[in-house]
């Protein structure tokens, strides 16, 4: 794949992950079980949206067609989104939301650390900024997964059910394609496959402490990174993009 096209694809993947997950997490605002968790979820969503701004702004620059981060976020349709299927999964209960967050945070924390070494200075700088936030997120979501997994019978049962339901969406994080190969060869981004062992080490340790059983099957749903999404993304975009679609160019 041509390098600039691969770079644009990669930046959309990074930015769309944080955008869609940030939107999902923001759906909790005002609904969390206790106020501290409500605040924590809203702050996490805010970090993710801030990171989105950085990734998509650079994507627009790399693309060179004059599209801003807002244009990319609000004016693309489902098939142009490149996020993992994992992040568009509906929230489910609080434990399910935190478990999804944990699976993502563990991955994001690892990839951002690798990206701080990117040969593309712009990517290294965004990663340096975002890595501090991701480190904080993974600390919190790991702790919550342990607390709920190794909690009451009810919380344990719910966390195990969430893990079983979300596990088929894990594999997509580690499936590279031609664009990833191009960027890895140029020293810009790591191969997704190469992140798996560090991810496994962190996740296994947390699942152990949480007394949760790692599912056996590594069957993986895929497609999000290429624009083939589940039905859920359309509903997210309908909500998120409504204003710019109905009132183009509306600003604060």
């Amino acid at each position: 794949m041509e390098k600039n096209a691969a770079l644009f694809q990669f930046l959309c993947r990074m930015g769309d992950n944080t955008l869609v997950l940030g939107h999902r997490v923001s759906e909790w605002c005002g609904h969390a079980p206790v106020i501290e968790e409500d605040i924590a979820l809203a702050n996490t969503a805010l970090d993710l949206l801030g990171q989105t701004q950085l990734w998509l702004e650079l994507a627009g620059t790399v693309e060179g067609k004059g599209r801003s981060a807002d244009d990319l976020a609000f004016l693309r349709d489902v098939w142009d989104f490149r996020n993992l299927l994992l992040v568009e999964r509906p929230n489910g209960d609080f434990g399910h939301t935190l478990l999804r967050q944990f699976l993502f945070d563990a991955w994001q924390n690892i990839i951002l650390a690798r990206l701080t070494e990117s040969r593309d200075q712009r990517i290294a700088e965004i990663a340096e900024k975002a890595a501090k936030e991701a480190a904080y997120h993974v600390e919190r979501s790991s702790g919550t997964v342990i607390g709920l997994g190794d909690g009451t019978d009810e919380s344990h049962r719910r966390m195990q059910a969430a893990l079983d339901r979300l596990w088929p969406y894990v594999g997509e994080m580690f499936c590279g394609d031609a664009a990833d190969q191009t960027l890895a060869a140029a020293g810009i981004a790591p191969r997704p496959e190469d992140l798996r062992s560090a991810w496994d080490a962190h996740v296994n340790a947390v699942l152990d402490a949480a007394t949760l059983a790692r599912p056996d099957s590594d069957f993986a749903h895929k497609g999000g990174r290429d624009g083939t999404h589940t039905e859920h993304l359309g509903y997210i975009l309908a909500d998120m993009q409504f204003l710019q679609r109905a009132y183009p160019g509306a600003a604060w």
């Binding site: 501290e36 605040i39 924590a40 702050n43 996490t44 805010l46 970090d47 501090k132 904080y136």
Partner: peptide, 28 residues
């Protein structure tokens, strides 16, 4: 009491002696 507080830069803590909750400007 919580890793996040009223703004992204703060966490929530509580004093076990005077029992007052307070914001902590978290270290990053």
């Amino acid at each position: 009491t919580s890793q996040f507080g009223s703004t992204p830069c703060k966490a929530l803590w509580r004093c076990r002696d005077c029992l007052e909750p307070f914001d902590y400007f978290k270290c990053i």
